[in-house]
Design a protein around this nucleic acid. Structure first.
Lengths: 123, 123
DNA sequence: CTGGATCCCCCGAGATACTG
DNA sequence: CAGTATCTCGGGGGATCCAG
């Protein structure tokens, strides 16, 4: 997806590294749960269990795993309030907000072509 | 992701069906391989083995499976030329083109925030 | 070349239990 | 409430072979 720009150029370790990184990131975020979590956080900051409710169908484990991944990539920020019981809030960072736009687009697309897809399936 | 619009309304079987369908579709397309295939087809029609090359890392099986899925949902069109050896071409349909735009946006996003993400990871 | 079918292994992911 | 750790199982997905 990215490589094309570099085709034919002399080997360049940096570009190759960037490309492999891009693929890695793409693989990270191009998955159902990650995108749904971002969609859920697009409106407002949410706590762990709120997310669990919003992103319906996700398991405890998947939610934590994906949140860690998103955090690692700097797409969501995790804020811990040292109260009792603990309170943890997840917020979209600026890069996360940027991705949010594309996720929204995907959701819009789904809505827009729902009928067409339904029709296509009947064939 | 879609349900929100309907919250609080009296139960409506049609809306529920549409929502479950939307989730199904979203799960179908929100996966790495499907999106990479669409990205590959965004420039031009491709044959099976060309796709296999473009979408590097994908296995024979995954490619066929995803193509069948995309075809079933009417995102790609499959044209068979009854020559020998057989020649099969895959093309993005109009809905497919629509999705392509959002995939492009995702790729752009990846490029744009590459450095930020790299930095975030080092922490 | 395209693409089904089969075998098989590994790990993704759910369930459960336990800490702070 | 939030999160980690362990166990376990099913099926995702690779490798391979066959067919048109």
């Amino acid at each position: 997806m990215v490589t094309k720009q570099f085709e034919g150029l002399p080997e360049d370790a940096d570009l190759r590294r960037a490309d492999s990184l891009a693929r890695e990131i793409f693989s990270d975020i191009a998955n159902k749960w990650a995108l749904l979590i971002i969609e859920a956080l697009s409106e407002r900051t949410l706590r762990f269990n709120e997310l669990r409710t919003e992103v319906q169908g996700i398991s405890h484990k998947m939610l934590t795993q994906n949140l860690r991944m998103l955090e690692r990539n700097g797409l969501v920020e995790r804020e811990v309030y040292p109260t009792v019981p603990p309170r943890v809030e997840y917020t979209l960072t600026e890069p996360g907000q940027g991705l949010r736009a594309t996720v929204d687009a995907m959701c819009d697309w789904t809505q827009r072509y729902l009928r067409d897809i339904e029709a296509a399936r009947r064939r």
